[in-house]
């Protein structure tokens, strides 16, 4: 096909402009801003003063930022183990030859198309509610009195309540990715293994798991990025003042940049430093998973 230079320019320009205004320029400016003392976002660059690493030192010394990092570390680790095991389990069940596969698949993925705010409202106002909630009435019916009286949204349990609700919404997405990975494995492998007398469990550990390495890497990377930008759920579980049990770094950042209940000082420079720190974590995660999980080129 003949190359049409005019066409290339005309077709590429809008996309490139959008990349520049939405990504290139803002990212550069955020990085620069994180090294300056900037009080308000709206002040002009002439009033910025160079601060070196001061903003970074400041946020790492702030107890609420450290609490938020500790929270997402727990969500990443505990939630990650639960979400990835559950989604792998569901994917294996769905490919085991059960009936109604597409119905179950669609039903498990469903929470992902619901607004997170609506989903969190359902959990807070119904499942975890102390007066008419699902959990408490469920345990009351079973006769577990102490469990039936538990306040799931009390400050000691709030974090775990938030994590449980979040996990419920997340599983479907990772299940779909595992599912397509398993479906890509040729059926012959399993047939050959069955003929050789390998049990289902052995087939799983010796065929499915090793061949899912690349998919596992994708899921781990997506999960990590997902957790670093954790926001809505934290906001929903402590909407008024950000409690240290549920605060997330992005919530902390919004609080110091735009102010919050009881916080009157604004610090856009430190906010930018939070953004850069989180972006650095994303970079490190990409790098580590790429180095750690070597994907052999599997040709089927």
């Amino acid at each position: 096909m003949k190359k049409d230079k005019k066409m290339i320019v005309a077709f590429m320009t809008p996309a490139i402009i959008s990349l520049f205004i939405m990504f290139v320029y803002p990212v550069i400016r955020t990085i620069i801003m994180s090294f300056f003392n900037v009080e308000s976002l709206t002040e002009s660059t002439s009033s910025w003063s160079f601060a070196g690493l001061e903003n970074y030192v400041k946020i790492w010394n702030a107890p609420s930022f450290r609490a938020s990092m500790y929270n997402i570390l727990r969500i990443w680790l505990v939630g990650g183990i639960i979400v990835l095991s559950l989604s792998l389990l569901f994917a294996v069940i769905l490919t085991s030859g059960i009936r109604g596969k597409s119905f179950f698949r669609a039903a498990i993925y469903l929470p992902n198309v619901v607004s997170a705010v609506a989903l969190a409202t359902m959990w807070i106002q119904y499942v975890f509610n102390k007066r008419h909630g699902l959990l408490n009435s469920f345990f009351a019916t079973l006769g577990f009195d102490s469990l039936a009286k538990t306040d799931w949204l009390s400050s000691d349990l709030k974090f775990w309540a938030m994590l449980a609700a979040f996990i419920f919404g997340a599983v479907g997405y990772y299940m779909l990715i595992f599912l397509s990975g398993i479906e890509n494995i040729p059926q012959d492998y399993y047939e050959a293994a069955t003929i050789d007398g390998a049990s289902k469990l052995r087939q799983f550990t010796h065929i499915t798991l090793p061949l899912l390495k690349g998919v596992m890497k994708t899921n781990l990377t997506f999960w990590s990025i997902h957790i670093i930008t954790f926001f809505v759920w934290s906001k929903m579980f402590s909407p008024v003042d950000s409690e240290s049990s549920t605060i997330a770094p992005v919530v902390y950042m919004m609080n110091i940049v735009f102010g919050s209940k009881g916080v009157t000082t604004r610090d856009a420079g430190a906010g930018a430093a939070v953004g850069v720190t989180l972006a650095l974590f994303v970079l490190v995660i990409f790098f580590v998973f790429n180095k750690l999980i070597k994907e052999e080129d599997v040709e089927y």
């Binding site: 930008t229 950042m253 856009a268």
Partner: peptide, 18 residues
């Protein structure tokens, strides 16, 4: 660009829009 978290871009966009 797909993997840049939106918190990295939101602050400058806000100041520019203002």
């Amino acid at each position: 660009a797909m993997s840049i978290p939106s918190i990295m871009v939101i602050l400058p966009v806000f100041s520019q829009a203002t």
